[in-house]
Amino acid sequence: MPRQLNIFIENRPGRLKSVTEILSQGNINIIAFTIQDRGDFGVMKLLVDKPDVAHLALADKGFACVLKDILVVSIQDKPGNLNKLASLLLKHNINIIDTHGFVIEPGNRGICCIESAGAENANITKILEKEGFEVLGDKEISEL
């Protein structure tokens, strides 16, 4: 099951660099990231090739960070496809806590990362796969 690394960082100069420096020293590849800004602080969410190594390296330097199970869904980069995914989740009454996406091959393939609430990720995977979505595992992600 893919995991996303979530890190608490203060909103002041140099804090992002202190995270990226540690990741760079650990030779960790960032596949995707997003930062939620809440004024004095933010939460940085990272999809990386070696989540356990990255987590240990950051925790070792004193960062407050956790690994969280997420769903990584491959979607065709065509109009209406995110809507199709969202409708499917609605149909099964699955709430999304947070999500972010990126295009990996323009016009062909995009990736959507989903943190869900209430339902088991394994169950959601089944639902999505049944409707033709490709849900990625650790190996596929590290090869993105």
Binding site: R38, F41, A64, V66, I97
Partner: peptide
């Protein structure tokens, strides 16, 4: 200080 023990990854929960 937000430590691992009290760190919830949800921004809402931190608020």
């Amino acid at each position: 200080e937000v430590e691992e023990k009290i760190f919830s990854d949800e921004v809402k929960a931190l608020r």
